[in-house]
């Protein structure tokens, strides 16, 4: 790496989560605060680099390229040019970026509903910035055909209950009333070896108010 590149600009890469694709970089070892940055992007296989509007001559070190890299079947590159006040400049490019390959999955959005002897868990679909031709937003479930959920209920130190599947509603049955439980729910996409961090909910089953004679 040319020495002038290192002290102006480094670590140019995409950070992608649920298909929100953010280009980030770091200033160099001795970058002055007044260094400005300009971002360009291109589709792999095409000639032109396109300037990203809103990320020209900026001082911040990130740029949202979600829209520009929104076709999940395409591959992209982006590059940043850093220019110091003294007029020195350096340009660095990302690796080839595929949002299908690189995006990480955020924890699901779940509603945990305690009952007397059970806990119901309702998983809400996760929408992404990706849109169909007619403008409809795609969910993770639309994009990943083999996406499924893994649910775990910690009953005590040694005993857990498990449920799993692609559907959205689950219920852990046969629980003790008026007792606290810890639930964790993760999203898994085997084809792309992706797994989200868990959504965690701590809930207490309701007291049993039925009178026994």
């Amino acid at each position: 790496i040319a020495e002038d590149t290192l002290d102006l600009l480094q670590h140019v890469k995409f950070q992608s989560s649920n298909f929100e694709n953010i280009l980030t970089w770091d200033s160099g070892l001795e970058s002055a605060p007044d260094t400005v940055y300009s971002v360009e992007y291109k589709t792999y296989g095409e000639r032109e680099w396109l300037a990203k509007e809103g990320c020209q001559q900026i001082t911040r070190k990130s740029c949202n390229l979600t829209v520009e890299t929104g076709n999940v079947t395409e591959l992209y590159y982006a590059r940043v040019t850093a220019t110091s006040a003294g007029g020195r400049s350096a340009t660095k490019m990302t690796d080839r970026f595929s949002s299908l390959q690189h995006t990480t999955i955020k924890p699901p959005d779940v509603t945990c509903i305690p009952k007397v002897r059970s806990i119901q868990m309702i998983i809400h679909p996760t929408s992404t910035p990706i849109r169909t031709g007619d403008g409809r937003r795609l969910t993770l479930e639309d994009i990943f055909q083999d996406l499924f959920y893994r649910l775990e209920l910690h009953v005590n130190q040694t005993y857990q209950m498990y449920l799993a599947g692609p559907k959205k509603e689950y219920e852990f049955m046969g629980l003790t009333p008026d007792t606290e439980f810890l639930g964790t729910i993760t999203i898994s996409v085997p084809t792309w070896s992706k797994e989200s961090a868990p959504y965690v909910c701590r809930v207490k089953t309701l007291p049993d108010r039925t009178w026994t004679y």
Partner: peptide, 20 residues
């Protein structure tokens, strides 16, 4: 896919002709 993902970044970095 798992096998390729282990070498993808290295092999793709060798390809400098990104217009084609």
């Amino acid at each position: 896919r798992n096998g390729f993902s282990e070498i993808r970044d290295h092999v793709q970095a060798e390809d400098e002709i990104i217009d084609v």
